[in-house]
Design a protein around this nucleic acid. Structure first.
Length: 271
DNA sequence: AAGTGTTGTCTGTGGCGTGC
DNA sequence: GCACGCCACAGACAACACTT
């Protein structure tokens, strides 16, 4: 039996409740605030964790795997460590095959199909010791000199995975090789440094890239949102229209996008 | 234990149509 | 010509049964 104390308001003599000194502690407001700040810092640190995707090589993946498989892959590559090994949990232990299935939240048959496809395409590799890793030709974590890469903020991709289906995530995956360095605009020449020379992709061109009709693409752009933000923003300049990918999820430059950019992607509330 | 096949349910896709 | 609502159908997935 643990000790039990009573809390009494000294002004009124009223009994306010029970206190168990063996089970509970009293923390000052100041301590509590410091603790909350610490927790927030930790979470922000994790929020800005990212992986790289090689924009040129990943086109090979697109040609080998179908849209939904690419979607699962985009989510799965969030779980690599700096050796590109798929890891789980706080202690970052390597994932077993079953862990991969659970991470993706798939049933037996759907997972078997996915696993067969990605291993045959050599996108997910099984090492001799039974450890699974992602082929670093396509996705990797850690420093790089390569500029033809796009960063994925893992916490945002994970959040997105919970909100949309794999095919939708695959849709985004297919667009990643077309993200412009400075502006996040989807264009046919993403490595062009001169902003004047960007050739933005039209809705029709986007449809061709993802291999569905313009109607479906249109609906996806409108639908893809999470946490009160759109994944794609439509930018109108008179009659011209182009599309921008959300820099809080995918970003090419160093560091983290400026918070003012967020406004472009906010979900507009009616009135 | 892990892979394969079948079936039922649900959701997304794309055709058609309407209003602006 | 564009935006989008409706709807039938196809495809994706889970659950289950069955095989190796």
């Amino acid at each position: 039996m643990s000790r039990q104390w009573k809390m009494i308001d000294l002004d009124t003599g009223e009994v306010k409740g029970d206190f168990y000194p063996d089970l509970q502690i009293v923390r000052s407001k100041k301590q509590d605030e410091a603790f909350k700040r610490k927790l927030q810092r930790q979470q922000e640190g994790r929020q800005h964790e990212f992986t790289f995707s090689d924009m040129e090589n990943m086109k090979e993946v697109v040609s080998m795997l179908d849209e939904k498989t690419c979607g699962y892959l985009l989510y799965l590559q969030c779980f690599v460590n700096y050796e590109n090994v798929l890891v789980k949990g706080q202690d970052k232990t390597p994932m077993a095959k079953k862990d991969i299935q659970e991470t993706l939240g798939l049933g037996k048959s759907a997972f078997a199909e996915f696993f067969k496809k990605v291993t045959e395409a050599n996108v997910v590799l099984q090492n001799e010791d039974g450890i699974f890793s992602i082929n670093s030709r396509y996705h990797f974590k850690g420093a790089t000199q390569n500029e033809r890469v796009v960063k994925s903020f893992t916490s945002k991709v994970k959040e997105l995975y919970g909100k949309v289906n794999a095919k939708d995530l695959g849709f985004v995956y297919l667009l990643l090789p077309y993200v412009h360095y400075e502006t996040n605009i989807l264009c046919s020449n993403p490595f062009e440094r001169n902003v004047e020379k960007i050739e933005p992709l039209s809705q029709l061109e986007l449809s061709e890239i993802v291999g569905s009709d313009d109607r479906t693409t249109y609906r996806k752009i409108k639908k893809l949102q999470f946490d009160q933000m759109f994944v794609l923003a439509e930018v109108r300049c008179g009659k011209e229209k182009h599309y921008k990918l959300n820099p809080f999820v995918f970003f090419r430059k160093d560091g983290y996008p400026d918070a003012s950019l967020r406004a472009d992607f906010l979900v507009k509330r009616k009135k």
